[in-house]
């Protein structure tokens, strides 16, 4: 555990909680892509199946349970409790265009051709693109609430910090995982355009809106 890994995890946790609180406090999930949230729930479910097979640390187990619990709570709020506020018309990204290729790729390129390892690989690949429905939704409506942009910033920052964690681990532990690194780079790159808008607009007190 190094500082990048820890702050990355905390940034991830912050993102998840910001989103849950935003929906809960405003009693609305307007502007939030339910499809991205379903994909994240699927990511955590397929990645953390090792909760049943191996114990790593109390920290590891607790964080996994919190991530999974929050992911399903978010999906529940969007599709059940506050369903009336869900903006389904603008959440029109075709997720099968992500899930099917990612499923194929995880069967083809993995560390070990075993069910748990393939599901772990699937979750890594899927996470890298799971935010696309949300970004697509923002590009479609042309705007995002400021709290939603804080959520996206924390979520993007998390994977960027993991990249530094992997650089650290490569130098000091000789550890590297090519699948996680390549997917992590892809994931971080997808946020770059958003990071730019966040710094140039949101941090200067403006609302994030895109030119028509």
């Amino acid at each position: 555990m190094n500082i990048f890994r820890l702050t990355g995890d905390l940034s991830h946790l912050a993102a998840i909680i910001i989103l849950l609180l935003k929906i809960w406090k405003s009693r609305s999930c307007a502007g939030i892509s339910g499809k991205s949230q379903i994909l994240f729930a699927l990511v955590f479910t397929t990645r953390y199946l090792d909760l049943f097979t191996s114990f790593i640390s109390l920290y590891n187990t607790c964080m996994k349970l919190i991530y999974i619990g929050c992911a399903y709570a978010t999906v529940y709020l969007i599709y059940a409790k506050f369903r009336a506020t869900y903006d389904g018309n603008h959440d029109s990204f075709r997720v099968e265009f992500l899930v099917v290729p990612v499923g194929g790729l995880s069967v083809l390129i993995n560390h070990d051709f075993s069910p748990l390892e393939i599901l772990w690989t699937f979750s890594i690949y899927l996470e890298s693109v799971a935010i696309l429905p949300q970004l697509f939704m923002i590009s479609k409506t042309g705007e995002a609430e400021t709290i939603t942009t804080h959520y996206l910033f924390c979520l993007g920052l998390y994977r960027a910090l993991y990249l530094f964690n992997w650089i650290w681990r490569f130098y000091f532990e000789g550890f590297f995982d090519m699948i996680a690194i390549v997917a992590g780079v892809v994931q971080t790159v997808l946020y770059c355009d958003f990071f730019y808008l966040y710094v140039t607009k949101v941090l200067k007190g403006k609302k994030l809106s895109l030119p028509a």
């Binding site: 890994r5 995890d9 991830h12 990645r47 090792d50 097979t53 191996s54 790593i56 640390s57 590891n60 964080m63 996994k64 991530y67 560390h111 070990d112 748990l116 390892e117 772990w120 993991y162 964690n165 000789g174 550890f175 590297f176 995982d177 699948i179 996680a180």
Partner: peptide, 10 residues
């Protein structure tokens, strides 16, 4: 090395 189970990262 390769990161095969167990995974310590989240």
């Amino acid at each position: 090395g390769l990161n095969i189970n167990p995974k310590d990262e989240l």
